[in-house]
Design a protein around this nucleic acid. Structure first.
Lengths: 225, 225
DNA sequence: TATTTTTAATAGTAACACTATTATATTTGT
DNA sequence: ACAAATATAATAGTGTTACTATTAAAAATA
């Protein structure tokens, strides 16, 4: 899929970095290198020293861009939510029927990710694996309310709200649209993680994207009047 | 709730510890102290040095019981799943109607936790907060398959399977019982975390346990034929 | 009571998170 | 074009953490 051929970029909340990594060659290498390295060794094993060595730079230089590795992970996650909202908007534009809109929205949120040629510097497939395995660590910690006060969760809320609006168009009386959509987004991540690492915890069916089918069915039944 | 007045205990997979913490005074203090300290400062800030100092022991002594803090968190989580399965079995025994059984099972998995006087050494309310905030970190890491090979996820699978069996009794044709139940367990944790720390991400309604109501409704609609 | 055996404390090491300072490159003004 | 100002990155550290080898003390057994 390509809409604009590299002519746009996803803006990320500037409180998350010390210096914008998009503003220099080294900054871009930090983002690309971080995606490769976190995907490879996981967030716990990932350190700025290892990242610096993998891109032939130094630890102190990485610290000029990000206060710590937590904020770097927040950056990657915010970019991802921004990118996903951009994709969602494109897949819904000019589609009027709310049922068709909901179907497209759920698929956008739950289907496996393919490379997006509009953003050649970012490997969305690796980034999706990172979001699945690591992104919940950005809010499952004691400073979540501080991060929230900086607006780090706004892109996620915006994304959820867009789908809520469709649900409320279909059934204005449905009481739990936010719970339903965040359950669906987080749940789809969990199920894909389970399917890969703990298959006995899910229901794998060959030749079918069971995750998307399951959440499509779940949401449609949930919002029935 | 009290069934047996301290005459039973929850067995935890012995591969998770080096020396059984239930076998000595220091071991019990490690578990109690760990629950207090992780609940207070979070798992990232938690170290064996801080734990040792909080119970007037030494770092090296804690290491005689657990290889690392990851395995201590696994221990706490396994105890919790074991305890929850024990509670589930008691709440389902002698109840025949599968709809009533399902209702009780979902409530057991999603309702807020109260202190259990059968296990006076463990503060289940604090432990529940730890499971909500920290337990997903035990599988969201690169060594999850090793832990799985040691059987660390068996208590979780057993718990899920018990509820799956009820669902299949009600609707034998339902294709995704494992996804539905794990979505519900993990989702309820997420929603309670959101409700406390990121309320804008959920649907808070005063004077109602919206989390349990939501998942009861979701599951009943999902398995309808 | 002497001898094992169990248990816990001391004292380390390597790696990690993070920073103060210095050196180098780039930009800007004249 | 060249010097001054500014931006950028590297060097060399500090305190802390995760983890271990060794020694000391206590308890159990012969």
């Amino acid at each position: 899929m390509e809409y604009l051929g590299g002519k746009i970029s996803i803006d990320v909340n500037d409180k998350v970095f010390l210096k914008d990594p998009r503003s220099s060659k080294l900054g871009n290498k930090i983002i690309e290198g971080a995606i490769d390295l976190i995907d490879e060794i996981g967030f716990e094993e990932f350190t700025f020293r290892k990242l610096a060595s993998s891109i032939n730079s130094t630890e102190a230089s990485v610290y000029r861009y990000f206060e710590n590795k937590h904020n770097l992970l927040v950056y990657l996650t915010l970019w991802y939510w921004g990118w996903l909202e951009y994709r969602l908007v494109f897949r819904l534009v000019n589609v009027e029927d709310p049922y068709e809109r909901l179907d497209r929205a759920i698929k956008t949120l739950t289907e496996p990710i393919k490379q997006d040629s509009d953003f050649t510097q970012i490997d969305e497939v690796k980034l999706n694996r990172i979001v699945i395995s690591e992104s919940s660590k950005i809010y499952l910690h004691k400073l979540v309310e501080l991060d929230n006060s900086h607006g780090f969760f706004k892109p996620y809320k915006d994304l959820v709200q867009r789908v809520c609006d469709i649900i409320l168009e279909i059934n204005p009386g449905y009481k739990y649209p936010h719970m339903l959509i965040s359950t669906c987004i987080e749940g789809a991540h969990h199920q894909r993680f389970f399917a890969e690492h703990l298959p006995r915890l899910t229901d794998i069916l060959p030749d079918e994207d069971a995750v998307t089918t399951f959440y499509l069915d779940l949401i449609k039944k949930a919002i029935q009047k």
